[in-house]
Amino acid sequence: MKLRAMTLPLSAAVLALAACSGSDSSAESDAMVESIPTALADADDMAKTAAALERTGVDGIFNGVASYTLLAPTDAAYAKLDDSEALFTDDEARAALAAMLKHQIVPGYLTLQDIASAIEAVPDGKVTMTAMDDTVLTFKEQDGKLVVVSDDGTTAHLGDESISSNASIAIPIDAVLLQP
């Protein structure tokens, strides 16, 4: 309960920083497209996440007006999983794939700069956000890079460039945060 109480103020701080950042970082993708699934399908090393969104129907949340940040595993991240191809071919794996995706979606349009600023603004250098599946993800800096840590300790490095759409944003990560 105490963790939840701490998560909400920090989440609000991150969202407030995102709302007023107004930054147009050069690391952000210049081309704005209608939806994150479309942008991912066109991006290098993101075909698996685009396919996962479509296969599970999770892509639908990115078609509305609400803003979300997707921590999008690269194709190389999926390749590290045992039998990752089964996630995309086995109908029984569809629910596990959807759960994995929901574990990597947080509310709001958060740029890399927003996350870095929020981390710098807190004394312990850690910012927590509640994912769509109601688990807590912790963002921090490690060895000069931004990382996200899942509640089970799985760590992923955030990529240097994000992929933007009109309402949402995807940040490539080098690991799958929830093992299916």
Rank of each mutant, 00 (worst) to 15 (best):
A43N: 07
A121G: 03
L146E: 05
V147M: 06
D114M: 03
A167Q: 14
A27C: 14
L137G: 02
K48Y: 15
A19M: 05
T56K: 05
I36S: 00
A52N: 02
S150I: 05
D44Y: 08
L158N: 00
A156F: 07
A12K: 15
P9M: 05
C20T: 15
T154S: 08
P172Y: 07
A12Q: 15
T128H: 11
A76L: 12
L3V: 10
K80W: 14
A27R: 11
A12H: 15
L70S: 05
D91P: 06
A76S: 11
T56P: 04
T7V: 13
V149C: 02
I36T: 01
T138L: 07
D75T: 04
D42N: 08
I119C: 07
A66I: 11
M32L: 15
L40Q: 02
A19F: 10
A50M: 05
K102M: 15
L3F: 10
F88N: 01
K2W: 12
S168L: 00
T138M: 10
F62A: 04
L70G: 05
K48W: 15
L97Q: 08
A77M: 09
A41E: 11
A47P: 00
L71Q: 03
D59A: 13
G108S: 02
L97E: 12
L101K: 02
T49N: 02
P73A: 10
L3D: 10
M32S: 14
Q113Y: 14
R55D: 11
D151I: 06
G60H: 13
M132E: 15
A47S: 06
L177F: 10
Q179A: 15
D82W: 05
K126T: 08
S168N: 02
V127F: 14
K126E: 09
L71A: 04
T128I: 13
A50W: 04
S162H: 06
D160N: 09
G57A: 04
P73K: 09
G153R: 00
P123Q: 14
E92P: 01
V136C: 07
F139R: 03
A95V: 09
L17I: 13
P172H: 08
S162Y: 06
S168G: 00
L10K: 04
A98P: 07
Y78C: 01
